[in-house]
Nucleic acid binder design. Structure first.
Lengths: 231, 231
DNA sequence: TTGTGTGAAACCGTTCACAGCG
DNA sequence: CGCTGTGAACGGTTTCACACAA
């Protein structure tokens, strides 16, 4: 964590090695930048300007430049940013390196299976390595290349997996108990698709992906004058 | 839009009839309050305090009270808010009345079907009344009680439906052209599940539900010290 | 006395504007 | 000359704090 060249007791002025913290909206946009950069790279581009990346992701040029400060990649006024370098830097920043992160999925209902196929088809730097369910008809099956285990084995299996990320796609009633299990198993980040707010320790991050809420928001703004926005 | 008792040219000081505008975060929380209130009502409660509603939804009491200002429902210091009245007021505010809003779904892949079953099983005040797809094997089928029509018929069918809300669940490549079709058909609110940012007129609201982004955010915070948060 | 309703303050993210550089 | 990097200003949301009501 500490710079070797750093004098003892005197904090480094520019901590180059340790990643800079960033606000949640910035993290979200970095993820979009990453995807847009991959597309641009596939299309044959090698450099990109902030205003181009902005247009691709629905942001502003100033916003892009501000966001990119945290990943510590310099752009040139002449050629813009190097797409490959920037992609790698963002990947390292968000996912801790090229190999990405591993996640587990709890709940193999329709939504869970949709998530599986979604993340198997594209390789977003994040892979689902195991699934869990209580339904005996699902346990043992291999869905989208991912084996389903009984929920009781969660703690045991997670110990060897070393994954900190989990997806909850179970009915609302079961979500809290699943969250408790996951937290016990060492999970520190949860994507929660169940329509309940989970009670977890403060060091565990929960992202509530609330489909009902998203649709109701759209319904609200569909019937009011409002600026277009992205979430 | 104008109050009948209002003097001509003089704006009403307190426009009671027309709904107050609210910020996006407030809209999102109102949706969560609505769901929590329904659960509380089903559990037999009839009144609720702001701090209780806050605990149920992961907000703070002050936040709840501030949010509820826009729906113009008064609570009593002794008994709190009337759950039934509050639910009705929020429903009216978000969805324009008890009957709710109608939406159409474009794209009957795994994600689209998951959305269908999700919104058929619970009745969130929002119903999906038609689906569209280009795949001939899907067209004509009735999935989860919802008929699938060919995409070419979208404009024609939407004319009679009078729906302003649409869900895009098609591959990224097709999303923009589908959005164009929907906008032409009069849609003013879109929930976009495709991982691209859509280009739409400024009066059309787009909510990007970006599953990759959500998971990457979780992955990021799973490996950093951060406060738990809900989105 | 506890909780509501709400002005006012604090906070945080976005936008502006410009120096610096290729 | 146009773009990057960034301090500073701005605007909006959250939080505070307190008058008021039951």
């Amino acid at each position: 964590m500490s710079n070797p060249a750093e004098k003892p007791g005197i904090p480094a002025v520019l901590p180059q090695a340790s990643p800079l913290p960033a606000a949640q909206p910035t993290i979200e946009r970095l993820s979009r930048y990453r995807r847009a950069l991959k597309v641009a790279l596939r299309d044959g581009a090698t450099q990109i300007f902030s205003h181009q990346l902005a247009k691709l992701t629905g942001a502003t040029a100033a916003q892009v430049r501000r966001d990119l400060m945290v990943v510590r990649v310099a752009g040139s006024p002449r050629y813009g940013y190097d797409i490959a370098a920037l992609t790698e830097a963002i990947t390292a920043y968000l996912l801790g390196g090229r190999e990405g992160r591993r996640a587990v999925l709890v709940g193999l209902g329709r939504l869970g299976r949709a998530m599986l196929s979604y993340f198997v088809s594209r390789r977003p730097g994040l892979s689902i390595v195991a699934a869990f369910d209580t339904d005996p008809s699902k346990v043992g099956r291999v869905v989208e290349g991912c084996r389903c285990f009984p929920l009781e084995e969660l703690a045991m299996r997670m110990a060897g997996l070393g994954t900190a990320v989990a997806i909850i796609a179970v009915p609302a009633k079961a979500a809290q108990s699943v969250a408790d299990l996951l937290v016990c198993a060492g999970v520190t980040g949860i994507a929660n698709f169940a329509p309940v707010s989970l009670d977890v320790p403060p060091d565990v991050f929960v992202e509530n992906v609330d489909l009902t809420m998203s649709l109701e928001k759209v319904a609200y703004y569909a019937h009011r004058p409002a600026k277009a926005a992205g979430g």
